[in-house]
Amino acid sequence: MTTTDTNNVAAITIAGAIAEAAAVLRQAGIAEARREAGSLLSHALARDRTFLLTHADDALSPDDLARFRAFVSRRAAGEPLQYISGRQEFYGLEFEVTPAVLIPRPETELLVETALEHLPMNGAPLVCDVGTGSGCVAVALLNERANARAVAVDISPAALDVAARNAERHGVRARLALLAADGLTALDPRGARFTVIVSNPPYIAEEEIDELQR
């Protein structure tokens, strides 16, 4: 990125790029178009929002602009912002998300809070997370309970790969066992007894998907 060159009339500044993208996203029906435009530019430049504000008059390089416009096109076509950026915050932690997993939703934090009420801060509680996806619930619980261990189950090996990386990112991988299985079918009922079993399966009906906010 370079400072705006007054001799280069084609140069687009950070502020101009955000305005352009916001117009595109607004036309596509994105509710918070300007905020998402800023988030996409932050991702394209690998810079935070403060940088965008304090360097609003800087011009984007051709490569940065092309990358940003590609992100905007994907978002305008309906791809979730979180899949484009590859991350989502959940329970105060940042998680990797890919199309192999569902995007953690804010209301799922209630599941974590409820489970924590049943997980003692002493002893060695054991959690089972069925349909773990990104691993957000299991990882958040282990992050809150340093004495706990967890078994995370998912039928998708690709989802388990994402969960493993998230557990590694937040320093709980050694306390998390990952199991490829359909629900509880692979667990031995004569084996370890779980303190808490949690699950947050998909709960949006197919006929409602098209009505969701883009």
Rank of each mutant, 00 (worst) to 15 (best):
D64G: 03
I12D: 11
Y91D: 02
D64L: 00
D63S: 14
A21P: 14
A181F: 01
A19K: 12
M1R: 14
P157E: 13
L142K: 10
Y203F: 11
E117W: 05
P106H: 03
A192Y: 01
G183Q: 02
A11P: 02
L142H: 04
T6G: 13
I14D: 01
F95T: 05
E168G: 08
A181T: 07
E117L: 05
C128R: 11
Q213V: 07
A23T: 10
A100P: 12
A159E: 10
Q27G: 14
P99E: 01
N122F: 14
V162T: 11
A115G: 03
A146M: 14
P99Q: 12
A22R: 08
S156C: 02
F51R: 09
D188C: 01
F95M: 08
L178E: 14
I103N: 14
I12A: 13
P99A: 12
A15E: 09
P99G: 15
G92D: 06
D154A: 15
R149H: 10
A164P: 06
E206Q: 15
I197T: 14
V151E: 09
S73P: 00
R67A: 04
F68M: 04
F194C: 01
V139Q: 00
A33L: 06
R175F: 05
D64P: 03
V112A: 06
I30Q: 04
A174Y: 10
D5Q: 09
E206I: 15
H118C: 10
D182W: 04
A205Y: 05
R145K: 07
R105S: 13
D57F: 07
S39N: 08
V196R: 05
P99H: 14
G183I: 03
